[in-house]
Design a protein around this nucleic acid. Structure first.
Lengths: 348, 348
DNA sequence: ATGAAAGCGCTAACAT
DNA sequence: ATGTTAGCGCTTTCAT
């Protein structure tokens, strides 16, 4: 009995008793409202707390205050593989940094495909004040958000239709793809292909559409046999390139929808003895760390991913404090980074 | 008043009242002890809960049960940058996967250097049942662990002295370095240098020591001017290589303490027009994604990082259920991966 | 099989 | 300036 008491961590009640004050007083002092009490009491309580090694129980605190000071980061299982997903990793960097500054804690939630029914019970269980959703997929059960919960939420890496009523932060895909195509056109390319992203990703469509429009605007024709599909992984880029290489006619330049796939494509070309950029120019998107490491290094679009993470935090905390849901889309300006993987088209 | 009630999420009490049962009964049924009650009651309660959209409050549940079903992942701020730290990213992958399988949630905690006093208050606040510490640094306040808390804990990516009394999981550095050196020696190299990790990392010393011992065992001399230091980043490897290149005499092979630095070293050589591996063989450690992407691809040591993450979870959960603290070290077997960055030494 | 009641550790009115 | 009280939403005896 007495032993059990000893094992348990000291509580507010214990501190109060030892310091000879009421539990409310102790709560005030240890909860940062010291100005309500006399200096002596404050000192005594703090000293007792220190000696006892008192640490407030966050759960109890959150239960009554209805604030967990924790935000959830929701990821599709596909994305919860940071080694293969520089995108999610970079966004997480930004989230972590800003959330830490603001004194918030972070809970990582990888959606469980096995049991989508318990999805909302897992997310909205009182343990988080709000959520950041990373690149939700098109059929994602997550997107029924407002049917199930009114937890504040911010979406990163996908531009959702307005009807979802969520605030989205996404790279300006149209601007980025436009810059890439223009760069290639200026080099003299007129035969340009594309490796598309997977059909479940919103970004795929925005990037594809921008590609088609820009080509059109430049008076170039979109050749459907040069539009191949990948899944945003290195391996898929490799395979897409192999498929492309089986065509009778080849483009002189290729836009990969992200850097991962561009890296895979470069490797496929290397194995097929097609020199990059002499025979084929290849560009990527995102400016992942690998883009500057591969050889040739990739011309790509720099997306300030970790700033996007910080921005997401700011937008979310703003909702938390104001109580007003935010909606709409913030398209983040991007930048063209010219490296070694692009050159004028080969002339026989 | 009534409005406020409406806004709030339904509680157990509400479900119980609507179903015409006591709160205890509802708790049993919704908490998985349905066998204690009659089928009709069970059905009724479940149905009411569903219609009301009831979701249990995890905080309240954890408060009374003293289990949060959440594991904390503690990282030094240096590591909390996943884009630059494939090591932490890969371990996190493994943690995330296994923790998800086990129904545990995960809280990411990046140590705050600004306020080390509140460190334990942040960690041991009732919100986690145990912790995984990723690659703690040598002077880390974290290592006073058992003075401050008896939270179960597992250390990954560092082999701590026994005195800390913590269970550590780390790649078999001695084996790995031995394999690398042996590989180089077999190729004919006798002049081998090393890029060391930073002094704050435990792994630096284990890798350095293994290097010195293996060279010694092979009858080779360690040339101190070929032992240069980096900080496990690509940039630091680049700079370390530049310093090395200023020596009058150069080694014919170089062991970089991790892949990041090997990548940086390769880049420095490229700029200095030193062909790899013809003029200099370079090896890395970890088998990070970049190792197979750079050109030439890196001969390196494969460390099953995500398995290490899973293993860490298993070890931690074992402690959680058994209540018995685990200690000692598990040295994970590693594997030599031979790629393009190594070749026999150049002969004039 | 079910209900009543105690309390997890804390905050926030409200009194004094 | 300090004490008292009523919960936060849930689990868990202990009765019935």
């Amino acid at each position: 009995m007495a032993e059990e008491k000893r094992r348990r961590r000291p509580t507010l009640a214990l501190v109060a008793r030892e310091a000879g004050v009421s539990i409310g007083t102790a709560s005030n002092i240890l909860g940062g409202k010291e100005e309500l009490h006399s200096p002596e009491t404050v000192a005594r309580v703090q000293s007792v707390a220190r000696h006892l090694g008192y640490r407030p129980n966050r759960l109890a605190r959150s239960l009554v205050s209805r604030k967990s000071h924790t935000v959830g980061v929701l990821m599709e299982p596909v994305h919860a593989i940071f080694t293969r997903n520089p995108y999610a990793a970079a966004v997480l960097d930004g989230l972590l940094l800003r959330l830490g500054e603001k004194g918030y804690h972070i809970k990582l939630i990888s959606l469980d495909r096995h049991d989508p029914k318990s999805l909302w019970a897992q997310i909205d269980d009182g343990s988080i004040d709000g959520a950041v959703v990373i690149a939700p997929l098109i059929d994602s059960p997550l997107l029924e958000w407002y049917h199930h919960t009114n937890l504040p939420c911010v979406v990163v890496g996908a531009e959702l239709p307005d009807s979802y009523g969520l605030y989205c932060i996404e790279a300006d895909n149209a601007q980025g793809i436009g810059m890439l195509v223009d760069h290639l056109v200026e080099l003299g390319h007129r035969r340009i292909g594309m490796i598309l992203g997977p059909k479940q990703q919103y970004s795929r469509y925005h990037r594809e559409q921008a590609f088609r429009q820009t080509l059109h605007a430049r008076g170039l024709k979109v050749r459907e046999e040069w539009m191949v599909e990948g899944s945003y992984t290195v391996q898929s880029g490799y395979e897409a390139m192999q498929r492309l290489l089986m065509q009778k006619e080849l483009p002189t330049a290729l836009v990969a929808s992200n850097d991962n796939m561009a890296v895979g494509a470069v490797e496929a070309c290397r194995q097929a003895n097609i020199p990059i950029p002499e025979r084929l120019s290849i560009v990527g998107f995102d400016d992942a760390p690998s883009a500057s490491i591969v050889s040739p290094s990739l011309t790509t679009i720099h997306v300030p991913l970790s700033e996007i993470g910080s921005h997401a935090v700011d937008a979310l905390l703003e909702q938390l404090t104001s109580g007003v849901p935010k909606r709409g889309t913030y398209r983040v300006p991007v930048e063209l980074i010219i490296r070694e993987s692009t050159a004028p088209p080969y002339v026989k």
